[in-house]
């Protein structure tokens, strides 16, 4: 009986310690860097939604450590909790994202722009050009792979701004 009470007390204390710790850090520290610019350095945000090659995922405080290669897609930054305004959106060409154990997330990209800077007409024309280059290139050649990369990037850009390409 005594040991059971002690056990319950320890469990309660442990729960309290855990919840107060969780309450203390609800923010993610974001470092977002491009070769020529530091977009965010140690910014405190609520969530970062990352386009990983193996799927899109969101990082909030106390996320498990994780490393992911990025695919061309939209990186979303939620400065405040859900309902606290529109997320800030960047289109990224690729790169890497690293989430550390202490809620620090690093995003490194070769290039990133705001969605407003994407030209819908250019996306469509580049996609068509890449599509015909892909069709005329020899199967398995470097030219074909390059055309496929172009197709994928333009398709992802189209998707981000609401232009459907196929």
């Amino acid at each position: 009986m005594l040991s059971r009470t002690a056990h319950q007390l320890i469990r309660r204390a442990a729960t309290r310690a855990f919840s107060s710790e969780a309450a203390a850090s609800t923010q993610v520290t974001l470092n977002f860097a491009l070769p020529d610019e530091t977009v965010y350095n140690g910014a405190s945000v609520y969530q970062v939604i990352i386009p990983g090659t193996e799927g899109e995922y969101g990082v909030t405080a106390n996320h498990v450590p994780y490393v992911a290669q990025l695919k061309p897609g939209v990186l979303q930054i939620l400065h405040e909790e859900v309902g606290g305004g529109e997320p800030e959106k960047y289109f990224v060409a690729g790169g890497y994202a690293l989430t550390h154990a202490n809620s620090v997330t690093d995003v490194i990209c070769p290039e990133a722009v705001k969605l407003d800077d994407i030209d819908a007409t250019a996306v469509s024309s580049q996609f068509e050009k890449a599509k015909s280059a892909y069709a005329s290139a020899a199967s398995g050649s470097l030219e074909q792979a390059e055309a496929q990369v172009e197709m994928e990037v333009n398709k992802a850009m189209g998707l981000a701004i609401g232009v459907n390409l196929s």
């Binding site: 060409a93 994407i118 580049q126 470097l142």
Partner: peptide, 28 residues
């Protein structure tokens, strides 16, 4: 597929970045 075609990661990611830059509005 790009690795099978003989591209390195840097070549791949630079190609992707370059394609992306080609579809931007001015002055970006």
């Amino acid at each position: 597929y790009w690795r099978l075609a003989g591209m390195s990661y840097l070549q791949y990611v630079n190609k992707a970045a370059s394609t992306m830059r080609g579809a931007l509005k001015e002055p970006a």
